[in-house]
Design a protein around this nucleic acid. Structure first.
Lengths: 128, 128
DNA sequence: GATATAATTCAATCATGGTTGAAGTATATT
DNA sequence: AATATACTTCAACCATGATTGAATTATATC
């Protein structure tokens, strides 16, 4: 575990990643690309989505760095999309760090009823 | 690794989780709760957010099952929020499974230029 | 150059949900 | 019951981004 506390900038960055992948159609696209289906029309057939909508979402994923595009060397009309391994690993790692249960701290006593902890334990005993 | 392929239902579920946490203010709230800050006014002070906005976002997190609420036993006006450990672990695990690079498959040859693989390798050699 | 195919981009429309301000509820003290 | 404190809910407004339909671009063949 590398990160104990995340800065606001890191959280904003994390949120940007999450915004990209939380869209249901984009998650479906990612799943298909991970599973080996890769060009716009294959993806469109598999997911019953229009080509322009596919392009739009793929563009968002590409700009986020999660996927890469490559034209077919024989016929450049075909564009194949693949996962960016490094980005996928980074994101998985970031997520794992953020949701690492070892990070959980006990409640901070900066607020709450105006009694001391000792008094409070006494009161608790009395109520039981 | 438990999951090789995710169903559409599982992906829709995953997207719902991600929608909840991708909102920047909710991520900030999660970070504070993980770090031990727990009541509405503490969170509000820490993040400079109005009480009603805090309540709204906490409600979304609670309905998703990621956090739990508990009233102070001495003075019930205070409500403390804590992370739901199980949910956090489930989500971390789900994310780890989905973005596991071992799931990546080679491209499926259901589309692309109308040449055989052998012809295509020949063409590649010729272009080099 | 004309035509075709695969994919992308543009911009208007629409859906979703965050934010805001007001009102309401829960809990406490006197 | 009146008043106070902590928190929640409501609903209108607003921001964001997905979707749609049209247009454009990239690549190919003849």
């Amino acid at each position: 575990m590398d990160k104990l506390i995340f800065t606001n900038d890191q959280l904003a960055d994390f949120a940007r990643w999450l915004k990209v992948i939380c869209e249901p159609n984009r998650l479906l696209l990612l799943e298909k690309i991970i599973d080996g289906v890769q060009c716009n029309c294959e993806l469109g057939d598999a997911l019953e989505m229009a080509p322009n909508l596919i392009s739009h979402h793929l563009s968002v994923l590409r700009e986020a760095g999660l996927i890469e595009a490559e034209r077919d060397p024989v016929d450049g009309r075909w564009v194949y999309y693949s996962i960016n391994l490094k980005a996928m690993e980074d994101l998985r790692s970031l997520f794992g760090d953020f949701f690492d249960t070892r990070r959980i701290q006990p409640r901070r006593l900066t607020c709450g009823p105006q009694v001391t902890e000792e008094q409070r334990l006494s009161l608790l005993r009395m109520t039981k």
